[in-house]
C-alpha cells in the first residue's frame, strides 16, 4: 500500500502538483491519464523521491517514508520505476540487463527466464541491446521491471512503440501481476487498452488528481448509461436537443455526440432507437462512456 499525503510540487512558481492525496492498494492497477506536461511523470518522480516535493509525504505500507537514506533504500527495494529505453547499455545483452536487475533487487532468478518466455524475447535476448529495435528495447525495459519484482511498480508510457500483439501480451502480464498482489501504476495514452485492465483511472488537471468516477458517476458500473452517435449534422443536433433535455447532450471535439440515458428503462430506450431510425442515424451505440469520450470531454476546455 502506498499513500500520498498532500503532495505539492512547484516549478518556477507554477503548481505542478497541488495537495495530491491518494492511496493505492495492493492488487490494484492504477491508470494515470493526462495530456503531456500535466504532471504525470512528476507524480511518479515524487513517488520515487527523484523530486523532493515542496510539501506532503509519501508513505509506504503505513510506516516507511523518505526521511533518511536508509529508508530511501528500503523503499527502493519495494518500489521501482520502469527504466527509459534510451538508457540501456548498448554494449551488453538483454539477458545481462535482466541479470543486473534481478541481482540488484535480490529477486528470484527463475523470473528471468520466465519473463523472457512470456514476452517472447528468446530470439534476441542474447544480442547486444545496441542492435535492438524500439519495440524490443521497450519490451526489455518492461521485462527488467518485472524481473525486479517489486511490490509497487511505476510504468511511464509502458506501451510506447509496441505492436498490438505485444500491447495485449503486456496487458496480460499486468493483470497477472495484479493478481499476485502488486500495485501497478501505469501512465498510458492507449486509453481503450488501459480501460480494459485498470481498476481505477485518474485524470490530472491543474495539479490535481481526479478519479474518473467523480466526473462520470457510474463510469465503472456495468450498465447502459450512454448513447453515443457518430457524425451529426447541425440540423439533426437541433432535433436531438428538442427530443432530450439539454443537460443530457454533449458534443465532443472528436465529432461524436453523447446522450446521457442513465436511468432509462427498456421502453424509453426503445423510443430512442425509434427516434434515431426515423432520422436515418445508423452509426450509434449504447453502452458506457468510454475513457476516450471522458478524456475528450474533460480536456475539451484546456
Amino acid at each position: 500500500m502506498i499513500e500520498l499525503q498532500r503532495i505539492g510540487v512547484q516549478f518556477t512558481g507554477r503548481d505542478i502538483l497541488k495537495e495530491v492525496t491518494v492511496t493505492f492498494m495492493p492488487g490494484e492497477i492504477i491508470g494515470l491519464v493526462a495530456p503531456n506536461g500535466t504532471g504525470k511523470s512528476t507524480l511518479m518522480n515524487v513517488i520515487m523521491n527523484y523530486i523532493n516535493p515542496s510539501s506532503g509525504k509519501v508513505i509506504l505500507n503505513q510506516e516507511l517514508q523518505y526521511t533518511t537514506k536508509k529508508n530511501e533504500v528500503k523503499i527502493r527495494q519495494l518500489v521501482s520505476m520502469m527504466p527509459d529505453q534510451s538508457d540501456l547499455y548498448n554494449q551488453i545483452s538483454g539477458k545481462e540487463h535482466l541479470k543486473i536487475y534481478s541481482s540488484m533487487w535480490h529477486s528470484n532468478p527463475k523470473l528471468i527466464d520466465q519473463t523472457i518466455k512470456e514476452l517472447g524475447m528468446e530470439s534476441y535476448i542474447h544480442k547486444n541491446t545496441g542492435t535492438y529495435s524500439l519495440g524490443m528495447r521497450q519490451r526489455l525495459c518492461f521485462a527488467m521491471q518485472i524481473v525486479s519484482d517489486t511490490q509497487v511498480m511505476l510504468m511511464d508510457e509502458v506501451m510506447n512503440g509496441l505492436d498490438p500483439t505485444h500491447v495485449e501480451l503486456i496487458s496480460q502480464i499486468l493483470v497477472k501481476k495484479k493478481s499476485e498482489g502488486k500495485t501497478v501504476i501505469v501512465a498510458s495514452h492507449l486509453l481503450e487498452n488501459l480501460e480494459k485492465y485498470a481498476d481505477r483511472i485518474f485524470f490530472m488537471k491543474n495539479g490535481e488528481l481526479i478519479h474518473v468516477n467523480d466526473i462520470s458517476p457510474g463510469f465503472e458500473e456495468r450498465e447502459i448509461t450512454t448513447l453515443r452517435i457518430k457524425e451529426l449534422t447541425d440540423h439533426l443536433k437541433e432535433k436531438i436537443s428538442n427530443e432530450f433535455p439539454e443537460t443530457n447532450v454533449k458534443s465532443l471535439r472528436n465529432g461524436s455526440t453523447l446522450i446521457d440515458v442513465r436511468g432509462y428503462d427498456s421502453k424509453k430506450l426503445g423510443n430512442v432507437v425509434e427516434f434515431l431510425k426515423v432520422n436515418e442515424i445508423t452509426e450509434f451505440s449504447f453502452g458506457k462512456v468510454t475513457l476516450n469520450d471522458l478524456y475528450s470531454m474533460y480536456y475539451q476546455e484546456g
Binding site: 520515487m48 533504500v73 520505476m81 538508457d87 547499455y89 533487487w105 527488467m144
Partner: peptide, 12 residues
C-alpha cells in the same frame, strides 16, 4: 547516460 536504470537501485 543510464540514469533511469541507476537512480532506482535499492542502494545508497
Amino acid at each position: 547516460q543510464h540514469t533511469s536504470l541507476i537512480k532506482g537501485y535499492p542502494i545508497t
